[in-house]
Design a protein around this nucleic acid. Structure first.
Lengths: 205, 205
DNA sequence: AGGCGCATCATCCAAAAGGATGAGATGCGA
DNA sequence: TCGCATCTCATCCTTTTGGATGATGCGCCT
């Protein structure tokens, strides 16, 4: 039996490409969406077996939230993430949100078709170069920062000094330093620039 | 008369998409390349009117260098950059390298076709949301950093402390501080994290 | 009620970063 | 040859950051 799939990507060109690739296979494209919102609406009445979803979706909600919403549908489609980027936190996030797998956009067309079929069978699909990283990520989970700490970290990453952060958040500099101290400890670094670097690297911000 | 075009993108899916889109128009796709090297080789004997080129090309040389090499061919194809990103320095770089224009991947298929035709006529093609930025970039040109300064800036951006940078570059910390002083002055900032931030923002690194 | 995480603020100290200034060496182009 | 940019290094001084430690108040869960 054929597998039905809904394409979700904010780039028309990529959607066309996927459609062209999939048209040569038994996989049947039943719809296209450019945003997460659209994807959820379409999936709920098209009921595809698989949703092939980009992580970055322009203005609206991102791929992870879209995934979570799609998995909450009944019946829930398998969600296969297809994206250009391979940031650790996003892979983890997508899988936690219920994605069946994660493919990089530079894979061969055959692998995409194969991935969709496997996702339809509820298999887990992971690009080999990602699998190792995911497992590693599991072994040393990212330390959890509190909301406030993330907020501070984000301001730090724009180059803000402690004084500026304090003014922005309406707290004293002492508080900011306290937060930053915790951030540095949790990230196991000893300078704000390195904190910014690992945060960027791990997709924390 | 029909316009011939060579597609350059490291993602098979995107190439398929472009091909699908362009097949509906008078534009004729005469070839596809996945890397810059391949693009240059193919262009030199296929002699397309236009090369439609992604900026990020995976492992090999990037879109800007590819553009420069393509423009050095005789006859030189018009080069149209098509990419996801809109970092200032890259736009400027591409145009300096001789690109006829710059389109974002989320534009409608029609605009891509239109862009190719205009590029073939040696028109300049710029996504409207970029044009303003390019002009602005022209008005306040990025301060020029020396090679050494860029090197230091890159190390800074990984979170390296002055001592580490000094060790890496085999110079004293005094020298590093001197370079950083110049970097901060040129970028008109007063902290390394802000320097890193503006450098990232402007595509300097 | 008691414990716990979190956010808030404080003080003290040490290390790192930043600013000002100057100076020697090299290499390149006018 | 002279000037200019670049890279190198140094000293002195101020500001910023980071580390340690502790305290208060709040909401939440048991």
């Amino acid at each position: 039996m054929t597998t039905t799939v809904l394409l979700v990507d904010d780039h028309p060109v990529v959607r066309s490409g996927l459609r062209a690739v999939l048209d040569t296979s038994e996989v049947q494209v039943v719809g296209e969406a450019a945003t997460g919102e659209e994807a959820i609406a379409l999936a709920s009445h098209l009921r595809p077996d698989v949703v092939l979803c980009d992580l970055r979706l322009g203005e609206g909600i991102d791929g992870i939230h879209t995934t979570a919403a799609l998995r909450a549908l009944d019946p829930a489609p398998a969600v296969l993430i297809l994206t250009t980027f391979d940031r650790d936190a996003e892979i983890l996030g997508a899988i936690e949100a219920g994605a069946a797998g994660y493919l990089l956009k530079d894979v061969a067309p055959d692998e995409i078709i194969e991935g969709i079929k496997r996702a339809a069978r509820d298999d887990v699909v992971l690009a080999p170069e990602l699998a190792a990283r995911v497992l590693k990520g599991m072994r040393s989970p990212l330390p959890k920062l509190t909301e406030r700490e993330i907020e501070v970290l984000q301001l730090m990453s724009t180059g803000a000094a402690n004084k500026e952060i304090a003014r922005t958040l309406f707290v004293t500099e002492a508080t900011v330093k306290s937060h930053i101290g915790h951030i540095l400890t949790k990230l196991d670094v000893d300078s704000r620039s390195r904190a910014i670097h690992v945060a960027r690297e791990t997709g924390l911000i």
